[in-house]
């Protein structure tokens, strides 16, 4: 029986899709059987980031409306045998996607896959509800900006009402020099406000954008900092204890962060 993890944030543009693609690919790298689901109906992106856009024949709406079998809609990744993507529909009619329909798909996928990673749409409407309904765990993505943290807090509040494990936090797009100057929220500040477990920090890396545009998750290239960050998150999901990545050569902030992380166990 697999585990379903929803990647959510509330605010748009903080990197949910990138995080989904990279965590999923990293888990596949560690020889897990992984299926990614894009639930952002009408604005599908996950397939583009994964470079699988051209291979779509059926999508999630076709599955729910029983125009095809679930297995027919799954797209196998170019690079990994054990990685699949269930794309969203590009039509704007979202009404056919219901919570029960989603639940059914996720339950079916859980039989065959170790991890199901769900990319949640922005916002807190029906699309959000559909994305979290089948999830066992949630990862909240935020950037070190006030608005993003505020929306993340709102989402955590909503998740607490659901039958789901307490969510974990990924802080994305950290710019170290800005954080040091105090122009960006500190990792400590964010963790203090949201008061949930920190599962990873990802620096703002040009490689991420470059890789996305090439349709290759950055996590495949082990050289970049962001890639290592995503791999670390995947390892933590598997239950390993991995220290947080150092943001810089000096260890000032890192030490503080580490002490926070140490409190989790």
């Amino acid at each position: 029986m697999g585990e379903a993890i929803v990647i959510t944030s509330g605010k748009g543009g903080v990197g949910k899709t990138t995080t989904t693609a990279n965590i999923g690919t990293a888990l596949a790298l560690m020889e897990k059987k992984v299926c990614l689901i894009d639930t952002d109906i009408g604005l599908r992106n996950l397939d583009v980031v994964m470079g699988l856009e051209n291979r779509i024949i059926y999508d999630i709406v076709d599955v729910i409306e029983e125009r095809c079998k679930l297995k027919q809609a799954l797209i196998k990744d170019k690079r990994f045998e054990s990685l699949f993507v269930l794309p969203a529909a590009q039509t704007s009619d979202k009404s056919s996607v219901t919570s029960t329909g989603m639940q059914k798909i996720i339950n079916e996928l859980k039989q065959d896959y170790d991890y199901i990673v769900i990319d949640c749409p922005a916002g807190i409407e029906q699309g959000f509800q559909n994305a979290i309904v089948g999830a066992d765990k949630a990862i909240v993505v935020t950037t070190p900006e006030k608005s993003s943290v505020r929306d993340g807090d709102r989402i955590i509040g909503l998740l607490e009402k659901e039958d789901i494990d307490p969510p974990s936090l990924v802080i994305n797009r950290i710019r170290n020099h800005m954080m040091k100057n105090g122009d960006m929220l500190d990792v400590d500040d964010i963790v203090q406000i949201l008061s949930i477990d920190l599962i990873g920090i990802v620096t703002d890396d040009d490689e991420v954008i470059k890789a996305s545009n090439q349709g290759e998750p950055v996590v495949i290239h082990p050289s970049s900092k962001a890639s290592i960050a995503y791999r670390n998150i995947a390892r933590r999901i598997l239950g390993e204890t991995v220290p947080l990545q150092s943001l810089e050569e000096k260890k000032s902030i890192f030490q503080k962060v580490k002490s926070f992380f140490g409190q989790r166990a």
Binding site: R150, D151, D153, R154, I156, G157, E160, S195
Partner: peptide
Amino acid sequence: IKSVNKIVRSGQ
């Protein structure tokens, strides 16, 4: 005095 033990998050 009503005692409540929780985090009142954004929007709550």
